[in-house]
Simulated assay, not measured.
Amino acid sequence: MKEMMEKLDAIAKERMDFHLQEKLIERQAARRETGSILTEPQVYRRDKEEDEIVKILINYVSDAQQLPVLPIVGMGGLRKTTLAQMVFNDQRVIQHFDPKIWVCVSDNFEEKRLIKAC
C-alpha cells in the first residue's frame, strides 16, 4: 500500500511540475442517423422475424388512421435497424402502403418535430 501511495504521489508531483490541470469533459455518444436502404450485403436468420412483422403490418393495418407502433427492441448490435430496413423494403409492404417514409427517431423523441421533418 505504501509503495502504491508513493507512485501516486510521484504522479501528482509530475502533474504539478508540468502545470497540468484536471478537467472534466462530458462526452456525448455519437448519434447516427439511419436510412431505409438496406446496407447489409446479406442478412442471415432474420427471415422468420421479417415475415412475422410484415404479416402483422399487412393484416392488422387497413388504413393510415390505424397505423400501430410496432417496436423492435433489444441491446445494441442485434441488427434491429437492419430488420426494420428489411421490413420497409419488403415487396409486400411496398405494395400495401403508399406512401411510405423512413424517420430516424432518436432518444429525444418529439412527435411534432418528427412530423415537421417529414
Rank of each mutant, 00 (worst) to 15 (best):
E26Q: 13
E26L: 13
R27H: 15
R27T: 15
Q28P: 01
A29W: 00
A30K: 14
R31L: 14
R31A: 11
R31P: 10
R32H: 12
R32I: 10
R32C: 06
R32N: 08
R32S: 06
R32D: 02
E33V: 09
E33S: 13
T34F: 12
T34E: 05
G35P: 06
G35D: 07
S36V: 00
S36G: 14
S36D: 10
I37S: 12
I37W: 08
L38P: 08
T39D: 14
T39P: 06
T39E: 15
E40Y: 13
P41A: 02
Q42K: 12
Q42M: 09
V43K: 11
R45S: 09
R46W: 01
D47M: 11
D47H: 12
K48D: 13
K48R: 10
E49R: 07
E49P: 07
E50N: 11
D51Y: 13
D51V: 09
D51H: 13
E52F: 07
E52A: 04
E52L: 09
I53C: 05
V54Q: 05
I56C: 05
I56K: 04
I58T: 10
I58Y: 05
Y60F: 15
V61Q: 06
V61A: 03
S62I: 09
S62G: 13
D63L: 07
D63M: 12
D63A: 12
D63V: 11
Q65Y: 14
Q65D: 15
Q65G: 09
L67K: 14
L67Q: 13
L67S: 12
L67D: 09
L67P: 13
P68C: 00
P68M: 01
V69W: 02
L70S: 04
P71N: 01
P71Y: 00
I72R: 00
I72W: 01
G74T: 02
G74K: 02
G74I: 00
M75S: 07
M75C: 04
M75A: 06
G76I: 02
G77I: 03
G77W: 06
R79L: 03
K80A: 00
K80W: 05
T81I: 12
T81W: 08
T82P: 07
T82M: 05
L83N: 00
Q85S: 10
Q85V: 09
Q85T: 04
M86A: 01
M86T: 06
V87F: 08
V87A: 11
V87E: 03
F88S: 08
F88K: 05
F88A: 05
N89G: 13
D90V: 09
Q91M: 05
Q91Y: 04
R92A: 06
R92S: 08
V93W: 03
I94E: 11
I94N: 13
I94A: 10
I94K: 15
I94D: 06
I94L: 12
Q95F: 00
Q95P: 00
Q95D: 06
H96I: 01
D98A: 00
D98H: 04
P99M: 02
I101S: 09
W102L: 02
W102A: 01
V103D: 03
C104E: 03
V105C: 07
V105E: 01
D107G: 07
D107Y: 03
N108H: 05
N108C: 02
N108A: 02
E110M: 09
E111I: 14
E111N: 14
K112P: 04
R113A: 07
R113C: 09
L114S: 02
L114F: 03
